[in-house]
Amino acid sequence: MAETTDYVTLISNDGFEFVVQRSSACIAEAIKRMLDPRNNFSEAQTNTCKFENISGVVLEKVCEYLYYHEKFRDQKDVPDMDIPPELCLELLMAADYLNV
């Protein structure tokens, strides 16, 4: 079995690759399970997730959110994250898909 790394790679449908911390990535329930070494799917083997239905722009925002979430974990008075209105709908759908 491939070793479990600290960083994982998330790939969008248009080929953008985002290398993010595993702990941040696993905030998204779907990603977490995808990478779960016990289940041992191919994603877990390669520490890489390819999302066929998420564009690079959206995935970037998702990663930003994951870090944002990690950063402000267990804190109050968290500042709002800046989200451009045109991305809202797509982001919402991605969030639903990834179970963030």
Partner: peptide, 15 residues
């Protein structure tokens, strides 16, 4: 034989 499968694909199909 799970390692042959892509989680993302299965997940997306169920989705």
């Amino acid at each position: 034989n799970a390692s042959l499968l892509s989680f993302e694909q299965l997940y997306r199909q169920a989705y």
